[in-house]
């Protein structure tokens, strides 16, 4: 399963409480769509760290890395070194 699909499954399970009918594009901003609240971001961090075995520094805890399915996938790949990405 692609990182995108795994992140999507996580978002549907975690923030849509299993409701598959809510439309969500890979590029949609979680903040602008009102999908996450101020602690929701910490849930995303927990997911990324535990699922992909990586650790986020406070500097990496920014919307550029985590605010959409596409951004998370790009960030994860960059951290894993499997694809060119732009994690700071």
């Amino acid at each position: 399963m692609s990182v995108e699909q795994e992140v999507r499954d996580f978002v549907v399970r975690n923030f849509f409480y299993g409701d598959q009918s809510v439309p969500l594009a890979d590029a949609d901003s979680f903040i602008e769509r009102g999908i996450i609240d101020s602690t929701g971001v910490l849930e995303i961090v927990h997911f990324v760290e535990s699922r992909y075995g990586i650790v986020l520094s406070d500097d990496e805890l920014v919307p550029e890395n985590l605010d959409s399915i596409a951004r998370i996938a790009r960030f994860v790949r960059a951290k894993q070194g499997t694809a060119g990405g732009a994690a700071p």
């Binding site: 299993g18 101020s38 849930e43």
Partner: peptide, 20 residues
């Protein structure tokens, strides 16, 4: 009911869930 069930499941899996 389905969403509430998933909420309870989520809280059981991740007790450190957020305010909401």
């Amino acid at each position: 009911p389905a969403r509430v069930e998933r909420l309870a499941e989520k809280l059981r899996e991740a007790p450190a869930s957020g305010f909401k």
